[in-house]
Write a protein that binds this DNA or RNA. Structure first.
Lengths: 218, 218
DNA sequence: ACGGCCCATATTGTCGACAAAATGACACCT
DNA sequence: AGGTGTCATTTTGTCGACAATATGGGCCGT
């Protein structure tokens, strides 16, 4: 992928990544309990590193811990998804606004290039767009905001949770071409350094996306 | 205080609260290194609980950890404060919008009551407003959003960092009466269930606050 | 004198064992 | 029969010791 691949240096890192992946991909089912002993034998590490991994999972809001009781994977609820998208709308809207202000001309050119690549794929009828391409697009804008708090909250925090919902509720479907147009307009606003419009378009983009998902759930 | 006082049940909880307080209040100076051994002797607990406490501090973005090297308290920079307020503007704006939608009539009445109390104090010339009253006001709106992610991000995350800046850069000053008027208008918008206006006013309120602080720094 | 290498030291990461708390089952009382 | 109190078991919380890694100083070669 891009140069943004986080790499594990300590053992707890590796265990954390493995557990996070297992949870997001649904191998560990949502709502289930995480037994420290069980996991420590399964992953062949001491309970200390399991505990550290679980603590970090809690930071991502992927698990919930109760003192002296243990940790459970969060359970996925329709309302939870709505709340998640509300926060996402807020943060990514601000990210787009800041990107319009702070991205370098070169970064914007790269972003246009990415959009063009997607255009070729969409024209070719690939449904591939949604999964990897969409997150790549959003990542660039988030990073382009140059706001470390924003970047951390979204990429280390919300995005894994959102992906968890996507995977486990089976969101692969279309909304490809219309989303592409929305992306195009957002890039145009950023390119014009129109902060106000960039934020507004990003918020509407995410709002549409939420409504699309909600419709799919009912 | 209000019924929102988090209470420590495990030892790591207590140590975490103590450390967090020490960092926010500046007893542990910003940018300094956190030695696990040193802290474990100082607080008379094992290194394990210190490590857990430090991990949690990292989740709040109050310390930064590097593997095999250690943890340092974050350093306060003007740019960092700006970024923080950008995120705050985004999240609290959304909180106000959701509060306008989701707060119960009773909660809104309580909020008006709080505002009235503040009015009496401001009229009496108290400067007390800024510190406790201001956060109380904002807390109620955040909680009123009924969005768990939003509540957690702001109250467990950003607010301690913001308070750290406030304390250590010595923000006590006025802006009392003007802020009061802004609060009043926000409550009015929420009371009218005007989501759009509530968000906009909250964002401007925080923007003003940021500009006020920036001016004070230069 | 300067730069690079190597080793001693100190700090973090990991482990297994013990202490404390919660969970569930069983017996007992009403 | 239903509820309650107690006890055994299981799970989490805490601890001290060991392993692995980074840091700093001194030595050597150029």
């Amino acid at each position: 992928m891009n140069a943004f691949t986080e790499q594990a240096i300590t053992g707890a890192d590796k265990t954390f990544f493995q557990l996070r992946s297992a949870i997001v991909e649904g191998e560990i089912v949502a709502g289930s309990k995480l037994s420290e002993m069980e996991l420590s034998t399964k992953y062949a590490v001491s309970r200390a590193v399991i505990r550290e991994a679980i603590n970090r999972l809690e930071s991502c809001h992927l698990v919930e811990r109760k003192a002296n009781v243990g940790a459970r994977v969060v359970s996925l609820t329709p309302n939870g998804l709505v709340q998640l998208y509300q926060v996402r709308e807020s943060l990514e809207g601000m990210a787009a606004r800041l990107a319009a202000k702070n991205m370098s001309d070169e970064e914007i050119e790269d972003l246009k290039g990415l959009l063009n690549t997607h255009f070729q794929e969409v024209k070719g009828g690939e449904t591939y767009y949604q999964e990897a391409g969409d997150v790549d697009f959003h990542y660039r804008i988030i990073v382009g905001s140059k706001n470390d708090h924003l970047i951390s909250l979204l990429i280390n925090g919300l995005y894994h949770l959102i992906r968890m919902y996507r995977v486990q509720l089976g969101m692969a479907g279309p909304r490809v071409s219309t989303a592409f147009d929305e992306h195009k307009n957002i890039v145009q606003a950023i390119s014009n350094r129109d902060e106000e419009l960039a934020e507004m378009l990003m918020r509407r983009h995410i709002l549409y996306s939420k409504q699309n998902i909600e419709a799919r759930l009912s």
